[in-house]
């Protein structure tokens, strides 16, 4: 990141820069913290602090080793730390988010070039790494979370409207559905997150829940349970809409969101873990450059055809 004087036009730039986008994300994530702290006690704050600290320290260490200039103003490693903290269980042992943060920064971000070039969402990679090796610890919620009950094909005992307040079991940031929805609206209005991915993702996931309900209930309640349980809503706002790892073209973003929605529902039904958000996001990050070049090839062919007509 360098600080330059503007020499060539344009001399007026839009107020939105990468650091303001990161600040918006930080604000939205911080809004998610108070509710679980009230509900589960201050251990949640310790988990968040540990995760952010581990990401930040490994970022500084990596910059030191790679002899790069450490730029504080660009907070993407802090955002990664907070997203990891949000996906941890409320009473997680402190070394869990520290390890997830270290893996996220040292394996998914630094080796691929620092900010703009990581092919995978570092937070999703960190949480997936930790979920693979310590599944019981990552899914150790006080009372069984709705997602685990759904996994066994039973009907969760809470009614969907109860799940809005985030009092039932689940990861720190993902249970407070109303707060997540508010953050989503805030980020979309501030244009930090492109609405196309979130809307297509929720539409595709909802459609899959309607057409293939996992539990013997009316399709509508199955839709409500699927959308409100697990980290699907949180993932649709924070994980999958990371601009670096999602496609660049508008049509590509819509396609990406839709396929991700279908994939996450398939992984929930046939996968090994109750929360498949991180794995679905990682798979979709691998496919996103392919979607992009497919959309560009279609526009190039259409443009070539239009040139012949003239």
């Amino acid at each position: 990141m360098q600080q330059l004087m503007i020499q060539k036009p344009p001399f007026l730039r839009s107020g939105q820069t990468v650091s303001t986008m990161m600040k918006d994300m930080l604000l939205a994530l911080a809004l998610l913290l108070p509710l679980p702290t009230v509900h589960y006690g201050t251990h949640v704050l310790w988990v968040a602090a540990a995760s952010v600290a581990s990401c930040f320290i490994s970022e500084i260490a990596a910059c030191m080793i790679a002899k790069r200039q450490v730029d504080i103003s660009e907070l993407s490693s802090v955002v990664t730390g907070l997203i990891i903290a949000m996906l941890m269980p409320p009473l997680a042992p402190l070394w869990l988010p520290v390890l997830a943060g270290a893996f996220a920064v040292l394996a998914a971000r630094v080796p691929f070039g620092f900010t703009g070039n990581n092919p995978f969402n570092p937070a999703a990679a960190g949480v997936a790494f930790v979920t693979v090796f310590w599944p019981q610890r990552v899914f150790s919620f006080s009372e069984p979370s709705a997602a685990s009950v759904l996994k066994e094909g039973l009907k969760p005992n809470q009614i969907p409207s109860e799940m809005l307040w985030g009092t039932d079991g689940g990861a720190i940031g993902t249970t407070a559905v109303l707060v997540v929805a508010a953050c989503a609206v805030y980020l979309i209005v501030k244009k930090t997150v492109s609405w196309r991915i979130t809307v297509c993702f929720l539409a595709a996931a909802g459609l899959m829940a309607l057409l293939f309900p996992r539990i013997m209930v009316t399709p509508l309640t199955s839709l409500k349970y699927e959308l409100l349980s697990g980290s699907l809503l949180f993932c649709s706002v924070f994980l999958i809409t990371d601009p670096v790892t999602s496609p660049r073209t508008h049509v590509g973003k819509a396609l990406y969101g839709a396929v991700a929605g279908v994939l996450i529902m398939l992984m929930r039904r046939y996968g090994a873990f109750e929360q498949a958000a991180c794995f679905a996001v990682l798979l979709m990050n691998a496919v996103s450059p392919v979607i992009d070049s497919f959309v560009i090839a279609v526009t190039a062919r259409r443009e070539a055809r239009r040139n012949e007509q003239q």
Binding site: W95, A107, P111, V132, F133, W134, P135, Q136, R137
Partner: peptide, 27 residues
């Protein structure tokens, strides 16, 4: 390490651990 801290057994057997380690060694 993973077994001691209450994780899965044979954590090292998964291929992706091999890929990651190979990446570090190659670097």
């Amino acid at each position: 390490i993973v077994k001691d801290t209450g994780g899965v057994y044979h954590a090292g057997a998964y291929p992706f651990v091999g890929f990651l380690l190979l990446g570090v060694i190659a670097a």
